[in-house]
Design a protein around this nucleic acid. Structure first.
Length: 493
RNA sequence: GGCCCCGUGGUGCAACGGUUAGCACGCGGCCCUUUCAAGGCCGAAAUACGGGUUCGAUUCCCGUCGGGGCUACCA
């Protein structure tokens, strides 16, 4: 679409989260697209932590963000680079801009510009409606220093228009009159220093230049800021990178996703038992499509087919039901070997993992997981409703008991079944099948009655794989033992 | 308020001047069946509205409405 999108031999991308919260789904999608693009073109993916706002920064959140990124498999090639450790870079840039006249010192008190929609009640409520683009007397050197420490503001060149090409949104142009003289360096807080911390605009541009970022891929909430940054690149004498803004991910009510929309952090989905690859696949199709109707695309295919040109301009609503569908699909379709580690981790978490399953009983484990997975949606299903397959300590679902243990002849019939099973010369699907049906026939009841009652007796649930497969998997000893253990419970509360 | 962006079923995406507007999730029904899933089949459901341009608009233009973003010494 954009001819300036000539992708060099090795594009350099970056994801630059700010540690003011956990990694949320929007950030994860941005990281994913950067990563997919870098992988597709054999480029470099850099991680940068934008921690210049010392007030709102929570350093302890950095680890969580990195962990979520790693969980998603979005490995970075360089970094993490912390902006807080590169202050001299930003100050040098500010000095350079000051020296060239592209920036000026502003002595206005910070409160003067506080407000806007963030604080509409300021100045009597009408303030935001008459609010003008920031342009104070300091720009022309009319203000005197006084006691106030200065901030450094960019001197937006008036009388012209700033334009750029966005790979996703196309041509963008805005009259410079509409761009405020944004702050580059905040006024100093500490008594000693003259200049303060850099703002996002300065930090991002200086770093993107220094890191030789070729493609800036980020959320569309930055679209309106981009002209400012284009101006900065030029004032710094640097080449403007390619921009690609991504449509936003919204909550079900079409407003920006936030805590009140429930789970928004990547970590919460990890905790719930989603598979990272399923999550990735889901995320990839929010704002992007392969062009055809493909939906189930594993990561290598995503990398192969990804392009920024195919990114949509429409905001997308996060649909948890679809995410769950993806997880179900992955749980179902992946070679069973690939989901074993995740199931193991889940069983370990539930403290019912046994070392043999990684050794001598590895085949049994793989087979059992394979048998169970068509009925699973999230990883914890393996340790919850399927718990009886991995542990002898499990509960009997109350509703299942009420539904399938109603018949008062059941204790006697199940007793006979237990005896019959215990005496079976062979322990396999058909042998169990015949034994049970023989008893049903002799007692004059439908096999289903015994099948359902037995299922509840041996796994505690109404839901399980086909009964005779379940019996074979569990083994004779367990089945007979559990049957006898359950008999006294039938009819009792 | 100002500036900018977006607008296909409830949701995520296709159709990039000519299709009976396609796929998927979700929803309803049927089949399968030993419970529950998975799977198969069928169904309801959309081009926000109004003007243009055109032989012909989902598609191009304008307006309205709706949604979103920015308008911070946050990022």
């Amino acid at each position: 679409m954009t001819s300036s999108t000539t992708i060099g031999s090795s594009p350099r991308l970056r994801f630059a989260p700010s540690p003011t919260g956990y990694l949320h789904v929007g950030g994860a999608r941005t990281a994913l697209f950067n990563w997919l693009f870098a992988k597709h073109h054999g480029g470099t993916f850099v991680l940068r932590v934008e921690d210049t706002d010392t007030e709102r920064n929570r350093p302890e959140l950095v680890d969580g963000i990195l962990e979520s990124l790693q969980w998603l498999g979005l490995n970075w090639d360089e970094g993490p680079v912390f902006q807080s450790q590169r202050m001299n870079l930003y100050r040098a840039a500010a000095e350079k801009l000051l020296a060239s006249g592209a920036a000026y010192l502003c002595y206005c008190p910070p409160e003067k510009y506080a407000g806007g929609d963030a604080a509409p009640e300021a100045e009597g409520g009408a303030a935001h409606s008459v609010r003008r683009v920031t342009r104070c007397g300091c720009r022309d050197g009319k203000s005197s220093p006084g006691d106030q420490k200065p901030a450094v503001r960019f001197r937006v060149p008036l009388g012209t228009t700033t334009a750029f090409d966005d790979i996703v949104f196309g041509k963008n142009a805005v009259a410079n009159e509409e761009i405020e003289d944004f702050v580059l360096l905040r006024s100093a807080k500490e008594p000693g220093s003259d200049l303060g911390l850099p703002t996002y605009q300065l930090g991002a541009v200086v770093d993107d230049i220094e890191m030789r970022i070729t493609h800036v891929v980020r959320g569309a909430d930055h679209l309106s800021n981009t002209p400012k940054q284009v101006l900065l690149y030029r004032a710094l004498g640097a080449e403007v990178p390619a921009f690609a803004h991504l449509p936003l991910i919204l909550g079900p009510d079409r407003t920006r996703m936030s805590k009140r929309h429930g789970a928004t952090s990547v970590a919460s989905y990890q905790d719930e038992g989603f598979l990272p690859e399923a999550f990735r696949n889901f995320l990839a199709l929010m704002g992007w499509s392969s062009g055809d109707d493909s939906e189930f695309m594993r990561t290598d295919e995503l990398i192969r087919r990804f392009s920024l040109e195919a990114v949509s301009r429409t905001n997308a609503v996060f649909d948890r039901a679809k995410l769950e569908w993806y997880n179900t699909q992955y749980l179902q379709k992946l070679p069973v070997e690939e989901i074993l580690p995740a199931v193991r981790a889940e069983l370990e978490r539930a403290r019912i993992w046994r070392a043999e399953w990684a050794g001598a009983e590895r085949d049994w484990f793989a087979h059992t997981v394979d048998m169970l997975r068509p009925r699973t949606r999230l990883l914890p299903d393996f340790s919850h409703w399927a718990r009886a397959f991995f542990s002898d300590s499990f509960d009997y679902d109350q509703q299942a008991r009420e539904k399938f243990w109603k018949d008062e002849r059941l204790p006697a019939m199940l007793g006979k079944l237990a005896d019959s099973l215990a005496a079976l010369p062979e322990w396999n699907h058909d042998a169990c099948d015949h034994a049970l049906r023989a008893i049903a026939e002799a007692e004059g009841v439908k096999a289903g009655l015994l099948i359902n009652a037995t299922r509840v007796a041996i796994v505690g649930q109404a839901v399980a794989p086909p009964l005779f497969d379940t019996m074979v998997t569990l083994g004779r000893e367990r089945v007979v033992g559990r049957l006898r253990r359950a008999i006294p419970m039938i009819g009792s509360k």
